[in-house]
Nucleic acid binder design. Structure first.
Lengths: 342, 342
DNA sequence: GAATCGTTTCAAACCGCTTTGGATGCGCAA
DNA sequence: TTGCGCATCCAAAGCGGTTTGAAACGATTC
């Protein structure tokens, strides 16, 4: 059942039927009701491909997920971010198209998305320092929103980010207030922008209290359980081991916990741990009482908001770039306590 | 730059240019080379929307991700499955469109996908017992491949699954061989098909050795760290606690480990644990030596294969339904050992 | 030299919708 | 009566490709 057939069946022109269904004013109310009823009765749904060609809009948003050929990690945060963004798209009748490409094809993918007209805009994931994608997207004129920011980029662009610096600064201050002075940082890979900012927050808090950051207490690696375990193990083996840790994710935090416990230490008493909690649905940080003290910010909510921002940018391309900084909560769980006397 | 412009520039008709670029035989080789060169020079990319309308194919595959309104869990396995499937799609110039919808809208979503012509086929995720989606998709004539199977469905359909029953049967036998007789099952939600099959494998292995399954040693819940922790804790508090556990995922396995260790027991000596390892890229089970003994099957590889199967089904709609059963490996790690004398 | 054939090219229809630029008919003011 | 404005509807021209059916032309066959 297509528009023409429906029109013939109604004794109307395709024009009128189209207008009736799309809510244009120049059609008689009685006619509109007839049309709507007939459309429902014959189970008519306009062909998306035709709409897209006729309107010139793709009614779709792209998410490009580069698969690093080196370290083949699929960011576990994607699932929840995508779920959040997807909810927004569904509500607005947009499609979400995911492109999984080897990272060396990423530029070609963006260019293709634009020139072939598959999408009306894209979300940029996991920005790095001086991320080249921002200039690229501006150059080819594809609307975009960055999830995160890219240190080093001067011209303004659209982004939505968590205040990672402030979050880690507060977490560090919290540990300092508890009397900890040797605090291990188990950070993500520090070419990622969020990891840079987190380290800055950590370093700032320390230096504000006249503590010189100890390079041996700062690690940077994938945010996996194993990596967290190894980093914490190394630090615990130091002559003057840390009494507290700051871990960049729930998962690496679990590795830190394993290292702590397998050293025979008790979490929350002998060693304190604060993690960053993305509030992943499959990785809840406890129920009533959080297991880990954490800086928390829902990545799913970030997905929803970033998607809304992008749709807004697509609808109003000439309104200046939007920017939004979300604050993380600092929630107190069972993994922190006063520094042991020593 | 569109086809007509390119044609004029070349002094050819759009017909010939289109044919030249699409490799049709009825065009002179010299002409073809001229056309291809010009297309590259002018950076011509055919408009996807136009191709889709003209050919009647969407060149896209759908993944519908229902968001349960009750338990809002985004399956952590999605990310890797999607990554695997996405690689296949990229290689074949297909788009992957994700629909995130409240689960009560799922049927309407599938019908819409079909009648609006957004996709050429879909992958069905997380099948349950007697899953209604299979009959629905057959009814509306949308090609599909199920990732998993649906116990109770009689008519043949396309699926790709891991042999969950056999995997858990082997794992149970392995524990029995080590002398364990009280083995706790920390299963996923048992309306999910894979969870049913895993329990069957576990029960079969026990009964084959004349051990009556103890209902207190069988739990079923979300596959989260917390749920694994709680289930294991309950079992460890029994008058006759288990000496071994079978956990349905790496994540719930980490909860089990925490319960074991917080009971002051040593993993791999006093209590053995086997998990199912989906080989998630952000959740590696150790490096050289696996942390957990595990039944392992890469969900990312499953994604690749399922996508290939779907593209094949789309290309050859009349070839009978394909089915493929993957076997999980049983890999030995540090979390299992002989049952303690007692 | 005419008929036939294969190669190469093109004009035009088509995919299913939106949208522009009229038409039509009616009521009402001039 | 004429003219104008308004409400309602329609024919036709896009959107940018693919594909059908036919034309043009040189080569081959009789």
């Amino acid at each position: 059942m297509n528009l023409k057939e429906l029109a013939t069946k109604l004794g109307l022109s395709p024009t009128t039927v189209s207008r009736a269904l799309n809510g244009y004013p120049e059609v008689n109310e009685t006619t509109r009701e007839r049309v709507v009823a007939a459309a429902k009765r014959h189970n008519y749904h306009p062909n998306t491909r035709a709409i897209r060609l006729a309107t010139g809009r793709a009614m779709a948003v792209g998410h490009v997920i580069p698969i690093a050929t080196r370290h083949e990690i699929v960011n576990p945060v994607f699932a929840d971010f995508i779920a959040g963004a997807g909810e927004t798209y569904s509500r607005n009748d947009y499609d979400m198209v995911l492109s999984v490409v080897p990272d060396e094809d990423e530029e070609a993918t963006y260019r293709g998305l634009k020139s072939k007209g598959n999408v009306d805009g894209v979300i940029v994931h996991a920005p790095r320092m001086n991320d080249p994608r921002i200039a690229l997207l501006r150059e080819i004129g594809l609307p975009f929103v960055v999830h995160g920011r890219a240190t080093g980029t001067i011209d303004p662009y659209c982004w939505l980010d968590v205040n990672n610096r402030r979050a880690f600064q507060r977490a560090t201050e919290f540990l300092l207030d508890l009397g900890h002075s040797r605090i291990g940082l188990v950070n993500g890979l520090e070419f990622m922008d969020f990891a840079i900012r987190r380290r800055t927050g950590y370093v700032d808090a320390l230096t504000a209290r006249s503590i010189t950051p100890d390079p041996f207490l700062m690690s940077s690696d994938e945010m996996t359980e194993i990596a967290g375990f190894r980093a914490a193990n190394l630090m615990l083996a130091l002559p003057r081991p840390p009494t507290a840790f700051l871990a960049s994710s729930m998962i690496s935090g679990m590795g830190v916990r394993r290292a702590v416990e397998s050293s025979g230490l008790v979490l929350g008493r002998e060693v304190s741990v604060i993690i960053h909690d993305d509030d992943l649905s499959y990785m809840k940080n406890g129920e009533d009482v959080p297991i880990f003290t954490a800086t928390r910010s829902s990545v799913r909510e970030a997905g929803r908001l970033a998607a809304e921002m992008l749709l807004d940018v697509i609808a109003h391309p000439d309104a200046g770039p939007q920017q939004r900084l979300l604050e993380a909560e600092l929630i107190i769980g069972q993994s922190t306590g006063p520094a042991p006397k020593g």
